[in-house]
Design a binder for these strands. Sequence first.
RNA 1: GGCCCGUUAGUUCAGUUGGUUAGAACGCUAGCCUGUCACGCUAGAGGUCGUGAGUUCGAGUCUCAUACGGGUCG
Length: 390
Amino acid sequence: MNRGIMKFNLIKTEKSKQKNIQSSGRLGELHTVHGVVKTPAFMNVGTSAAIKGGVSSHDLCDLKCQIALCNTYHLHLRPGDDVIRTMGGIREFMGWNAPLLTDSGGFQIFSLSSLRHITEEGVHFSSHIDGDKIFIGPKESMKIQSNLASTIAMAFDECIANPADYEYVKISCDRTFRWLISCKEEMERLNSLSDVLNRDQALFGINQGGIHEDLRIKHMEKITKLDLDGYAIGGLSVGESMEDMYRIVGTVAPCMPENKPRYLMGVGKPGNIIKSVALGIDLFDCVIPSRNARHGHLFTWDGAININNAKYITDETPIDLCCGCFVCEKYTRSYMRHLFNSKEALGMRLAVLHNLYFYNDLMEKIRAAISEGTLGDFVEQYGEKLDRRI
RNA sequence: GGCCCGUUAGUUCAGUUGGUUAGAACGCUAGCCUGUCACGCUAGAGGUCGUGAGUUCGAGUCUCAUACGGGUCG
């Protein structure tokens, strides 16, 4: 990397007016070959080149979505990364004309496949679709992501469920580091090929180390030296307590390069995001807004509601009076509850649209708060409130 | 009118030769979901077994009567 593929500019802001806050957050602009992302940002998750619940890439434009996320593992299995390469890359394929990040498949292999065998070269496992024997290692993951031609590729890593044995985490971290070196070399080679779809594909490294601070710091220091385009904290929100999660984020973030985007993978609830921004994180992704929406769990600025509840049967108010999304402009809780109760596909679609808008709106408000130097107030006002059920 | 079948949770139905606190599915009520196998997962409420007698230590189960529903034969 280090070829100027990607620029990350931190924007000077009002000095934090708060005292009881570790950091005032970072306001930035991530310049990619496919457009600019204002950070802190939330990446909208569309695992199989589609947001579950019937949301299209066209819808994403109306949701203030700046950057989408798709998954290497799923797309490799179906329709196949060769197919997507033939179709002009993932962005062309799904009609998304903005930045897009692909996850490496590491997490899926470790979370979906019970039958797997790890070697120095990668992982042998079975497809969750048809049980087919598959092998993916750092080189294979880079090749697939190069075929997908995403804006940003993620390194291939091992994501260990917490809590995990210290010795195993150490062995795994070292292997993940060797895999990262291999990822970097392979991505540089692929980017230099004459027939590559995206010769400017960026690569982010992923920090691991479970909930062990010393392993985390050591690993972070090692991967920083590789001078990648960005850095992620992986292996969190996978079983540990919230306390441990914030402790690790708080420990690792200060060790991350100041001038590179920092991505906290798989996090989280609105409160998790707000507090992590205060700890210095720039990028997030999470299935919560879409998955919970499909189950009737809707976010509002007063807390979360379950639209299935009987108390909404004749509720004439919108999901959230303060929300600017068209679902809240047009429909009542009563109608939403009816759609869910009668299992109409429209209910899910509207719910997902609302929650994704809420998340993107949340990020916009966070950026405004950082800009004005009032993130501390924001954390105090919303850090706990938004995650609570009302 | 005669004969036969049925009646068990809101609904559709299980329920063994009579044996602890009568089950399931769906529905209902609520909770959960953190780099998405997932319109999913978990839990809870809800039944004096149509009614009334009888046999029995003990009846949803056996006997009789009766009500209601369905079938069939004059």
